[in-house]
Simulated scan of single mutants.
Amino acid sequence: MKLTQVETGAPCWVELGTSDPEAAKRFYAELFGWQVETDPRPEAGGYTSLLLGEVPVAGLAPLYAPGQPTAWTVSFAVADADAVAEAVRSRGGAVTMEPMEVFDLGRFSVLADPAGAVFSVWQARAFAGAGVLNEAGSLGWVELATRDTAGAKEFYTRVFGWSVTLGETYTQWGLEGRDFGGMLDMKDQFPDGVPPYWMPYFAVEDVDLTAERAVALGAEVVLPPSKMDGGPRLAVLRDAQGAVFGVHQVRPA
C-alpha cells in the first residue's frame, strides 16, 4: 500500500463480524499484539475497537443479521455515503444496509458490487478510521476476488474514481496510481460455490512466524507463506470461526 493515512476513496477501516467475539478478541490480540476496547454502551451492541498501542486499526462485532457469515469487511472512506449508495444501486450493485448514523462518529452503509462482493463505506465525522496504515500490525492491502474482472473495473472506477494498474496476472487499484489494493481473477482458481469477496491483508514483520503463530492459536493456513512475483511475501489464513484474512511482509512506506 502506498498510502499511510486515510484518504477519500481509499480503504479506511476493516471490521470483523464473528460468531464468537470473545474467542476472536483473544486470537487477534495474541496474533497482532492488538489492544481490545469494547464499547460498554448497550446501544453499541458489543462493538469492539482493536488498537495498535493507542491507535485504532480495526473493529470487531457480533453477528447482527440472520445468515450473516463470519468474515472481515473492508470499508472505504467517502464524502457522501448516501450518494455512493445511490451510485452503487444505479450501476447494478446492491445496498445491503441503507446509510445510517453511528452515534456522532460517522455515517455508514453496507453495499455489494454487481457480482455480489460485499464492502462498506464510511462518511467520517468524529471518527476518520484507522489511525495508521501500512505499518506492522495494521492494514496494508485490500484485495477483491471476483470472476467478473471486466465488470469490476467498470463498476469501481465509476463509483470511486479509482485508477487501475494492469499487470500480467494481477490488477491493482489506486488513487491516481498510488495503489492500495488489487483484484484476483477467481476463474479456474476457486470452486464454483465460493462467492466473490473483499479481503484485508495486515502488514507484519515476519510472514512465516505469523502464520506459525496463527496455527498455534487455532487458525488454519489457506495459502502457505509465498513470495509473489514483483510483490511481498504473504500468506492467507482462516481463523477458528472461519474469517479469512491475509498477512504480508511490511515494506517501507
Rank of each mutant, 00 (worst) to 15 (best):
M1L: 14
T4L: 11
Q5K: 15
V6W: 05
T8E: 02
T8I: 14
T8A: 04
T8M: 02
T8F: 02
G9F: 01
A10K: 10
W13Q: 03
V14A: 03
V14I: 14
E15F: 11
G17V: 07
E22Y: 06
R26I: 13
F27R: 01
A29K: 09
L31Q: 05
F32V: 02
G33A: 08
W34E: 08
Q35C: 09
D39A: 14
P42F: 04
E43A: 15
G45V: 01
Y47I: 07
L50D: 11
L52H: 14
G53Q: 10
G53P: 15
V55A: 12
V55Q: 14
A58W: 05
P62W: 03
P62N: 07
L63M: 11
A65G: 02
P66Q: 09
P66R: 05
P69V: 09
A71W: 01
T73S: 14
S75N: 14
S75L: 15
V78S: 01
D80V: 10
V84T: 11
V84E: 00
R89L: 08
S90D: 14
S90P: 06
R91F: 03
R91Y: 03
G92A: 09
G93W: 00
A94C: 06
A94E: 09
M97N: 11
M100Q: 10
M100I: 06
E101G: 13
E101D: 15
V102A: 12
D104P: 06
G106V: 02
F108G: 05
V110A: 04
V110D: 00
L111C: 11
D113K: 06
P114A: 13
G116I: 05
A117P: 10
V118K: 01
V118Q: 06
F119R: 03
S120A: 15
Q123F: 06
F127A: 13
A130L: 09
G131F: 04
N134F: 03
E135V: 15
E135W: 02
L139G: 09
V142L: 05
A145I: 03
R147H: 07
D148R: 07
G151L: 09
G151I: 06
A152Y: 00
Y156R: 05
V159R: 01
W162V: 14
V164G: 08
G167D: 02
L175A: 05
R178G: 14
D179L: 06
F180M: 05
D185A: 13
K187D: 09
D188L: 04
P191G: 08
D192N: 13
P195V: 11
P195N: 02
P200V: 04
D206G: 07
L209P: 07
T210Y: 00
T210C: 04
T210H: 00
A211D: 08
E212F: 02
E212S: 13
E212P: 03
R213E: 07
V215L: 11
V215G: 06
A216P: 02
L217M: 08
V221N: 00
P225H: 07
S226A: 11
K227G: 04
D229G: 08
G231L: 06
L237M: 02
F245I: 01
G246A: 07
V247L: 00
H248P: 00
V250E: 08
R251D: 00
R251V: 10
A253R: 08
A253D: 08
